[in-house]
Amino acid sequence: LLAPVIKGLGLDIDGHGVVDNPELVWFALLVAVTLQTSFLTPPVGFALFYLKGVCPSGITLLDIYKGVVPFILLQLLGLLVVALFPEVVTWLPSVAYAN
């Protein structure tokens, strides 16, 4: 559904000669990292609620929120790297599938 829109943006991402449609691969990974970040942040925070369900009764949801802050920061750093350096996304497939 979004492929024509992404292609229409005219992004110039290096596919290293191996990756077809590198801008689509980059966008898919950008969406995947964003979704993973949303699983750790309120109001969605599915992972946080699953964790609360298996924790001892003395652990509050606030404790869990405080505990995931470093992981959220790492996710945001990863999202920033993917957004600013799109060639990083296409590098590994180019190495894995090079002849």
Rank of each mutant, 00 (worst) to 15 (best):
P4L: 08
G17P: 10
L24W: 03
W26D: 12
G8Q: 05
N21I: 01
L29F: 14
L30H: 13
I6M: 06
V5L: 08
L11H: 05
L2R: 07
I6E: 00
L11V: 00
A28V: 12
L29E: 13
L9T: 04
D12G: 07
A3I: 02
V25H: 06
L11P: 03
K7P: 00
F27E: 12
A28K: 13
L30K: 15
D20V: 12
A3G: 07
I6P: 04
L2P: 02
G10H: 06
V25S: 11
L24I: 13
G15V: 07
L29H: 15
L30F: 14
G8R: 03
E23P: 09
V31Q: 11
V5G: 04
G15Y: 07
V31M: 13
V18M: 09
V19R: 09
V18A: 05
A28S: 14
L9R: 07
W26S: 11
L29C: 14
P4N: 02
D12Y: 01
G8A: 02
F27I: 12
L30W: 14
V31E: 14
G10R: 02
E23V: 10
E23D: 15
A28T: 12
W26T: 09
V5R: 03
L9M: 09
G17A: 01
V25F: 12
V31L: 14
V18N: 01
G17T: 06
V25T: 13
V18H: 00
V18K: 11
L29S: 06
V18I: 15
L24P: 10
A3Q: 01
F27L: 12
F27C: 12
G15K: 05
G15N: 00
V31H: 08
L30Q: 14
L2N: 03
L30E: 12
V19C: 11
V19M: 03
N21W: 09
A28L: 12
A28E: 13
L9S: 01
D20Q: 15
A28Y: 08
P22I: 08
W26R: 13
G8M: 07
D20N: 11
D20C: 00
D14K: 03
D12A: 05
V31F: 11
W26Y: 15
V31D: 09
G17V: 06
E23L: 01
D20I: 08
L9F: 07
L11M: 08
D14G: 03
E23I: 09
D14W: 09
I13P: 09
D12N: 14
F27T: 10
V18F: 05
V5I: 09
A28D: 15
W26V: 15
L29P: 00
V25D: 11
A3V: 01
G10M: 03
V19I: 05
V31K: 11
L24Q: 07
K7A: 08
G10W: 02
V18S: 02
V25P: 01
P22M: 02
P4G: 02
A3L: 04
D20K: 15
A28Q: 13
A3W: 00
G17M: 06
P22V: 05
L9P: 06
I13G: 05
W26P: 13
I6C: 04
D20F: 04
P22T: 04
P22Q: 06
F27P: 06
L29R: 14
P4R: 04
G10V: 07
V31T: 14
V5P: 00
L24E: 11
L24G: 04
V18W: 04
G15P: 11
G8K: 01
P4V: 02
E23R: 10
P22F: 03
G17K: 00
P22L: 06
G10Y: 04
V19Q: 00
G10Q: 08
